[in-house]
Write a protein that binds this DNA or RNA. Structure first.
Lengths: 219, 219
DNA sequence: TACACTCGATCTGTTAACAGTCGATGGTAC
DNA sequence: GTACCATCGACTGTTAACAGATCGAGTGTA
């Protein structure tokens, strides 16, 4: 974490628990807390300048998001993903986003949806020369938008529960591999498929996109 | 909860937090804590005979499972599902179980899988004259098995995150409607489809099963 | 040297108490 | 009667401290 003594948690209005949650999530998905790293509650609470009780609530949530794995006696460590797990995560991700695409295809009026998705892609294009971090953000934002636009809160929530694992997968692969998965063109293909309203085309496009991405990550 | 003064949490070896989690989940999905019911931490901690700190960790998890919804200032209440939400939940469920079925179809040797699934259906058949509670349990156990057999831990975890919502959906509908969704025959169809190895047949069978179930629940 | 035992450090599980905030209640001025 | 204000009660947010368990170092003995 950035500077053990600094007040890592800023002066926002959210609860300390939420701030801790965000800080820990960022630390894990950025690799600052590397996979396999053992987490000690007293250390973390000191770093984050919050009490253990508050910290533990945040840890429970991270555990359920799959960013932490519990060892014997409640010892928590940063989850380590192997190639199979990454493929598995992307399989589930593909299933969820396929559902999203299919749902959007079935909407009678998709113009608004298409517009929103195109905007998201433009944001990706604008970030093409930025840091990897920014590019990943805009990429994930596109896919999150895909789920959000369905209006299916459960779908969005399930996807977001997976988001941390997705980020870890990308981080696991490292810079060189992560780059290839964020082609703007491929995302236009997805939007184009949705625009036609052809659900199986949209589904196949998503699935291919995900299979390619997963394959690149574990290569 | 059963008898406010009784030591609801037995003498198991699991942590108090896990016991509380299980007890609350059961109370919610059984309707003992009815949808919309406002939850007060001090009340619950007294009922469960645990401290608020421990209780709060369990509440965070239930919140993320979608059994509780947060109101202003962190006030929690039992989530209330409307018809659309039930349909949405079953859409996601269908997507996940379709992935499970497809994954199983792609296994080179499915005999062991088929055997396990048949056993699960036999358990359902054996429970046909039992209470609705038992029948729901055996039904969910079949579907959980479907996900577990894929060996995709992420898929199983996503499904289990949805399980509470599924139970609430069934409860919401009440006895009369819930009954129709647990036909043994329909489940044999699913297994038969997997046995043929025809992924799209399996997927369609699952999806029809889910659509029928959701339609019955909201009827 | 090998083995067993004790002591101590380390961490998690759990609890009780304090603090701040929002809403309701009741009283008072106009 | 109404509007405003003070006070009180009810909850959540947060914290520090206690308890119990496990692991390893170090010591004593055969």
């Amino acid at each position: 974490m950035a500077g053990a003594t600094a007040p890592l948690l800023g002066l926002q209005k959210k609860s300390l628990r939420e701030q801790a949650l965000a800080a820990l999530r960022a630390a894990i998905t950025s690799g600052e807390l590397e996979p396999g790293r053992h987490l000690v509650e007293t250390e973390l609470s000191e770093m984050l300048q919050i009490s253990r009780g508050t910290l533990r609530e945040a840890l429970r949530q991270l555990e359920q998001e799959g960013l932490l794995s519990a060892g014997p006696r409640g010892r928590l460590s940063v989850r380590h993903l192997d190639a199979k797990e990454i493929r598995d995560i992307y399989s589930v991700r593909a299933a969820l986003e396929s559902l999203a695409a299919r749902t959007l295809c079935e909407l009678p009026d998709r113009q608004h949806v298409i517009g929103s998705l195109r905007s998201a892609i433009e944001a990706m294009a604008a970030a093409e020369q930025s840091s990897l971090q920014d590019r990943v953000e805009s990429d994930l934002e596109f896919h999150r938008t895909l789920c959000r636009l369905t209006g299916n809160e459960t779908l969005l929530h399930s996807w977001e529960s997976l988001e941390g694992s997705i980020r870890m997968s990308i981080m696991f692969a490292g810079q060189d591999k992560g780059v290839m998965n964020m082609s703007v063109d491929r995302h236009y293909d997805i939007v184009a498929a949705i625009e036609t309203g052809d659900a199986s085309l949209a589904r196949n496009t998503i699935r291919e996109h995900m299979e390619t991405a997963a394959a690149n990550l574990v290569a």
